[in-house]
Amino acid sequence: MTDVKFIAAGVARARDAFVVIFGRHAFPSECLGVSIERVDGSVMDAEFEEVANPQGEVQRVINNCYTPTRKHLATYGNLYSISIPITEWKTVRHIRLTLNTSEAVPFYSRNVSLEYMTVFDESEFESFFTYQSRRNIDSFTTAIVARNNLERLGELQAVNPDMACYAINCFVILAYKAVELSDTSLLTYVREKLHDIRSMEALVPFGASIRQDPIQMQISLAMAMTHVHIHSNDVNAFKREAGRVVSAVRNQTPFRLTYGLNVSLAQVLLAVFDHYHGAGKEDDFHAVMDTLRRSVSADTDVAMQVRELQSVVANAYVAKLFVQSYRTGDVTPQTLAASLRDIAPRVNTEAFRKKMKSFLLG
């Protein structure tokens, strides 16, 4: 963003938007205006109040932003922290800030923005939500946007087939954020919405993009639910969903590189769980190594997808340790248990890792 006099950073919470205004110089707070553009196209002036708390909320997000963002915001003075009450997030499309009703106060970047809280079409999904680097970096804000879009897409019969992959994409993001936040209401929403979303898998057309691949959508959805069931300690549901991931690609040709991350994770989770619950088999761990080989052999034009091999390698490393323990017995139980730290889950928080380890060990 080119240098401007005033910029903003914001996060969403259940009933509020928290915003910090940064500026090159101070201005009277009564000059600040806030408006909300609704999904139906109407615009309303919004009430807000100056409060101290949002500064801490927003600052935590800024601290996690990319270095250029942090450095640029540090060149501004921190002028105002405001709270904007929100009755229903699902009606909100944009939050706008102005000075003296005319001068726009833009959000600094998408990573700290409260614009596009609801997106309307494929172009907006690609530009403002599908990719992690283009979303608000705050997990709860991202969860609200994901839920907004699921609400807007509505029931199966109302979904344009071209948008089905984005509905699944939103659901997967929301499921992971619900687990990361350990948010009971979001987790309940995910479980209630699963049937409708799973019905959309058949609508996804096959194309060049990973979001135009019914198999990719199927394994992404099943892996997200695998995490949900680990979080809730539901063994049967965990086995069912992880099994869906594995079976989806068992005889699949060609094998896309992007399959490897979820498939190797599902395989190693199932194999480790069975090992610690009296049903372990060496062949199950060999399957993870096979997935590594299939992933390395797959071709891609997207450099970012090659980076995902790091996670496949991490899962294969754990599997190889278990194979070694079966064959030679020279890997101690303590080493095997410690190796679970190297498994690469899709929710990489300390809290979830502890929960996952406890779940696998029984």
Rank of each mutant, 00 (worst) to 15 (best):
R93I: 00
I95W: 01
A338I: 06
V112A: 09
L292C: 01
A164L: 01
V235F: 09
A316S: 14
R341W: 09
G280N: 07
Q216C: 14
P85H: 03
F359G: 07
S339G: 10
S247W: 00
S297C: 08
H231I: 02
A298L: 04
F18I: 00
T291V: 15
Q55G: 15
Q55H: 08
S139Y: 09
A279E: 13
T87C: 09
V58T: 05
A344T: 06
V249P: 00
S83G: 08
K5M: 14
I219L: 09
Q212F: 06
Y326V: 04
T300Q: 00
L265R: 06
N236K: 10
D121N: 15
V112R: 01
Y326T: 02
R135S: 02
D299K: 11
G278C: 09
V245P: 00
P254N: 08
G56E: 13
K5S: 15
Q132W: 13
I173D: 05
L181Q: 08
Q132S: 14
A9N: 04
V347S: 03
S209I: 00
Q59T: 14
T328F: 10
V313L: 06
V347C: 07
S264D: 04
A12I: 03
A26W: 12
G41A: 11
I86G: 03
R294I: 04
G77M: 11
N53T: 12
S325R: 00
D299S: 12
R294K: 14
N262H: 10
F120I: 13
S209F: 12
V51H: 07
N348K: 14
L221T: 04
